[in-house]
Each structure stands twice: as C-alpha cells, then as structure tokens.
Nucleic acid binder design. Structure first.
Length: 568
RNA sequence: CGGGGCGUAGCGCAGCCUGGUAGCGCAACUGCUUUGGGAGCAGUAGGUCGCAGGUUCAAAUCCUGCCGCCCCGACCA
C-alpha cells in the first residue's frame, strides 16, 4: 500500500476525553473515530488490525471443529421473554420497536437466538456434540462507556455455543476451548493469563476468564507466581490463616466518641488493625424473612460483594443498608456497630471466626467493646468466605502465596449446563429415543477489546509497538527525499514491488514528507519493520533496517529484500 | 441513576466574571525556500459560539429550559 493511496490520518494532539494510552493512541494513529458515546468507526488502518485479530480467532475456532454462522443483530422480544431475560438483563438491553409496535432488542449476546436455532436444527444425539460460533457486532447499553473501544457500547465479539448430550462431554469440550483460547492469545503475541471466574448473569457453574495483563486493567487477579493457581479476585477463595487463640483479655466497654471508622479506632486506641472487626449491614433477600443482615470482616479486610450476594440470606444485587435503616434496626450509627447484642442475623468471615481479644462497636453510639471473645462473650455466628483476598494470602490449593496483578478481560468461557435448553425447550433424542435437553457451553472473545488491550501492553513514548501478528502492515519503506533523488525513489519502488509480490503487507511512504514526519508516523502506528532508503546509505551500498522497539542496523542494499523476507 | 465538569473552526484551547469587531496554536489549502527526527516565510480558507426561549438598543458573554459529551461509583467481551 502506498500512503498516497491510503487514508493515513495521524494527529499530534489527542482529544481531551481520551484517558488511557490505548484510547489516545488509537485516536492519534487514526485507527478509530468516535461517532457518539461508546460507538466508533474503524478507519482503514484500524480495520486492518481488527481483521487480523478476527482471522486468528476464526482459524483457531475452525481448527477446533467449531462451525461459523452469522446470526441477526436484531432479536425479537419473545425469545428473551422465554428465558426471562427481557426484564432480567435490565437497561443493558437496547430495546427497539418496529412500525407495527413489535419489540426487539439489539443483541448483547446470543444465547436465546442460538438456542432457538438449535431447537430447530438439532434433533438427534448423532448430531452432537456440535459448536457454532459467530463474529459479530453486539450492543450493550453500558451505564458508562469509556476508554474508547475498551468498554464501548457497540463492539465486535466472537461468541460460540456448544451442545452436548451430557456433562462429561461438555467438560471435555470446555477443556478444548480453554486450550483453543490459549492458542489464540499466544498466536496474537499477547501476555495473558487464564483465571477462574465468576459467571455473572450469563449463568452456569464452571467458568474461566482470559486476561491480557496490563497495569491499566480494570480487573484484579489473584495468582501464585510460578504455580497453577489463578483466579479473578471476585472469585478467589480466601483461606483463613492460623487458629483461634485462647482469650487473654477481659471484655471492656470503652467510650470512643471520636472513633467513627476502623482507622480512628486503630489510631486513637492503639489497637492492632488485625484485632478489629468491621460490621457491614446489607439488605436481606426477600426469601430470608429478615430486612437486614450483618456481615463481619476483619478491620483490614474488604468485603467481596460477589461472595456476599451469593449467600441465600443476602439480597442480590448487594445493597448496603442506609444510615436510617441501620439506626432504626440497631439504634446506633454505622461507626459504632458490632456483633455483641446485635439484633440481626450475623455472618462472619472465616478469618473473623478465628479472632480473639478483638474490638468492635457496641451498638451504642460512641462506645466500643474491647477484648471480645467468641463463645465466651457471644456465640460464634454463621461463618462464610466473605472477604477479598489480599496479597500474601495462601492460595486455596496450597500452592503458595497469592500475588495480585491487573488484567483486561478479553475472553470468557462458561459451562452453562441446561439453563437455556430447558427454558427454551430445546430437545434432542438420545440413544433410547428419549427427549433430552442438551448441556451447553458458551465461549466469548472481545475482538475489538483485544485491539485496545494489545496496545495497553505494547507501546512506548513514540507510539504503538504492535505484536507482529496484529500489525496493520509488516514493513514500512521510508525513501528519504525520494522526490528529489531518483535512485532513492527507484530503489524504494523496486523493494516495494519485491515485497508486495512476495505477499508481504508493506507500506510505502511516498508522501514527499520530511524525514522527521515519516519516522514519527511509522513509529506512531507501530509497524514492526522500518526500512530507510537514503542517498547517504546508497553511497555506502547499505539500507537502514529498524525493527520497532529495538536497535537499527545497516544491511547490504543487495541483500535487503532477502534479509527482510528472512525476518518476516 | 447519583455526584462533579465541559460544549467557541477538523483537533487542543482563550474570550464569558465586567454584554458592543470571535481569537490563538496545531491540522488544511497556495507559492517560494528547506529536506536524517513532527520545517521557515508569505498568503488563503474555515465558526448557526450545542439547541430553544427570555432580558437588552445590542448576547459567545446575563437568565430559564432542553440536548450532547466527559470524569468518579455499581455493570461487562
């Protein structure tokens, strides 16, 4: 491609709404342009990258036996009503009405459409297992779109769905998909990690996420360096450490008029934070016959919302009680709550159950108890895993100490089970001629998000440093003063022809720009291999070769073609 | 949705407080010069000042309403 024939639209300045590096660079390189909040145009440059990712995904899915389809983006409300997700999916679902007043949604995911397809197409166990996938535009009316295509409302996603006669078969295929995903991210040249995950509102039991590792990632991951264990902190099990020591202190009630937080208590009363208890009041579930529930975590620990709302007694989604609710139920303010004489159901974190001689609010404003001990001063409440893991915690599999890192979720695989096949009555005949609801798996990859995630992981002060498999072009040729020097121009043209004929994606900068502009653009858009043709070099019989992100060197002008072909 | 901020040329901004000719940098266009790190000079073009009302002799500027966008929280590929 000649730049003069291309639409290269780089810019020096970035719009002030671009917060993170990938968003800034995608705008500066001209890969994307915003149409409106969370909705972007992919320019020719950006689309080349998007297609690269898409193609790797497609090839690996095909290689694992999956079959590509393309399903409608617009889906009728009736399908979503069958699974109760028309309402349950909430405002994330973009709803559309046609001229006849019929309701539709712009698909945020395709379980319903796929299950509908399957119930029509799949009749016999002989057709199973089978996996269909598509690469298609989705729309989720995100509460807050941000970071460019990283969290866009409209985005490109690969979603696959598999069907199986039994769980064992599903599990086997799930492992295949796990391996397929790993190959995809390896091929793309990304530093990634697969972690145990929470399955969220898609449903299902077993689930893994694939994360591109980057400090700007929105997700926190718990892993053990050098070992197997890795989980999203949302999900990571917190193991209690140690044993409960025997009481050594007397129970005392102390006036603490100025201690409204755990930090105050620690500072003003010289309490070790590991000896304090944080009492959080949340709304109870409708089935529980309570209004509120108290959750206890150690003072230096944080409540894990996901774990909490999975408890039967706790309302889901989790809702913290208001100050008024607490005042009414307990008679004290949030700064003075504790488990002793608390007129609410109580659930303690595992670690809390091992504490002794601890302090907590007295449920009277301005008073705390010190020297509290379970089973002496108050009964041990129900115990559950409630807290977020922290660095240094032992991994639940005993493999070592947990370290926390950040990642960008780019893939998610689920074992859905029979949730959708039952809800939508998809039935296939088994070997005995009995109708069976097939077990399903579901496998997503955020194709457009991968592009942004790759940049978060691969850039320097000059621009993007594409992993070679994602680069929009492999080589860029810069003829310095090519419009003045015939031999520079001719050499560049001839090299361009050689590489093009060899099937290399090569960009020729034929814009008559000054060298600085050419270098800056080549580096900004992150082309892996730059070739500089100049009079200076030709005088010495050499061509300059600059791999993006490492040292340049001179190559014999007669060898440069072969040299490049050998390096690509 | 709650809290905060911003809408002036393609992009980044000033002007608004204190009403009176709409301005700067980058980008764009023309010419000349320049050519190994985002050039210089000269010139040109480009604006319903987010929209609608109101106040006023006069509104980018003051008032009211609406719309859009961004940031902080809950959601997700």
């Amino acid at each position: 491609m000649r730049i003069s024939q291309f639409h290269l639209a780089t810019q020096r300045e970035v719009p002030n709404d671009a917060e993170i590096v990938s968003h800034q660079l995608m705008i500066r390189t001209g890969m994307i342009r915003k149409l409106t909040s969370g909705i972007y145009t992919w320019t020719p440059l950006g689309l080349r990258v998007l297609r690269k990712v898409e193609q790797v995904v497609r090839e690996e899915m095909n290689a694992s036996g999956c079959l590509e389809v393309l399903m409608p983006a617009i889906q009728p409300a009736e399908l979503w009503q069958e699974t109760d997700r028309w309402d349950a999916f909430g405002p994330l679902l973009l709803k559309i009405t046609d001229r006849a007043g019929r309701e539709f949604a712009f698909g945020p995911t395709h379980e319903e459409v796929m299950t509908d397809f399957a119930r029509a197409e799949l009749r016999s166990y002989k057709q199973l297992p089978i996996c269909f996938y598509q690469i298609q535009t989705k729309f989720r009316d995100e509460i807050r779109p941000r970071f460019g295509v990283m969290r866009a409302r409209e985005f490109l996603m690969k979603d696959g769905y598999s069907f199986h006669m039994d769980e064992a078969c599903l599990d086997d295929f799930y492992q295949i998909m796990h391996a397929t995903y790993s190959r995809i991210f390896e091929r793309l040249g990304l530093n990634f990690k697969a972690v145990e995950a929470d399955s969220g509102n898609i449903g299902g039991a077993t689930s893994h996420e694939f994360h591109v590792l980057a400090d700007s990632g929105e997700d926190q991951l718990a892993h053990v360096p050098g070992a197997q264990y890795a989980a999203n902190v949302e999900r990571a099990e917190a193991v209690a450490v140690g044993e409960r020591a025997a009481p050594t202190e007397e129970l005392k009630t102390i006036d603490t008029p100025n201690a409204k937080t755990i930090e105050d208590l620690v500072e003003q009363f010289d309490q070790p934070i590991e000896k304090t208890i944080k009492t959080l009041i949340v709304e109870a579930s409708a089935e529980s016959e309570h209004d509120l529930v108290a959750l206890l975590v150690r003072g230096d620990h944080e409540l894990n919302d996901i774990k909490a709302e999975k408890l039967e007694i706790v309302a889901s989604p989790l809702k913290m009680a208001t100050d008024e609710q607490i005042k009414k139920a307990v008679g004290a303010s949030p700064g003075s709550l504790g488990p002793l004489n608390l007129p609410l159901p109580i659930i303690a974190d595992r670690q809390v159950a091992l504490m002794s001689d601890f302090s907590a609010g007295a449920n009277v404003d301005g008073k705390h108890h010190f020297g509290l001990n379970w089973e002496r001063d108050l009964p041990l409440p129900d115990v559950a895993d409630l807290r977020k893991v922290v660095a240094g915690d032992p991994a639940p599999d005993g493999s070592g100490e947990i370290e926390l890192i950040r990642g960008i979720e780019v893939g998610h695989i689920f074992q859905l089970g029979r949730k959708y096949s039952e809800a939508m009555n998809a039935v296939v005949m088994d070997e005995q001629g009995r109708g069976t609801h097939p077990a399903m798996g579901c496998y997503g990859i955020g194709v457009s998000r991968i592009v942004a995630a790759a940049i978060e992981q691969n850039y320097d002060e000059r621009g993007i440093v594409w992993p070679e498999p994602m680069a929009p072009f492999k080589v860029v040729i810069l003829p310095l003063n090519g419009h003045k020097s015939h031999r520079v121009k001719e050499f560049a043209e001839s090299l361009y022809d050689t590489l093009t004929e060899a099937g290399v994606e090569v960009l020729l900068d034929d814009r008559n720009q000054r060298p600085g502009v050419m270098f800056a653009d080549a580096e900004l858009i992150g082309i892996p291999h730059t070739v500089v043709v100049s009079d200076r070099g030709l005088d010495q019989g050499t061509i300059e070769y600059r791999p993006r992100g490492s040292e340049q060197r001179e190559v014999d002008m007669n060898q440069i073609g072969a040299f490049l072909l050998g390096h690509l």
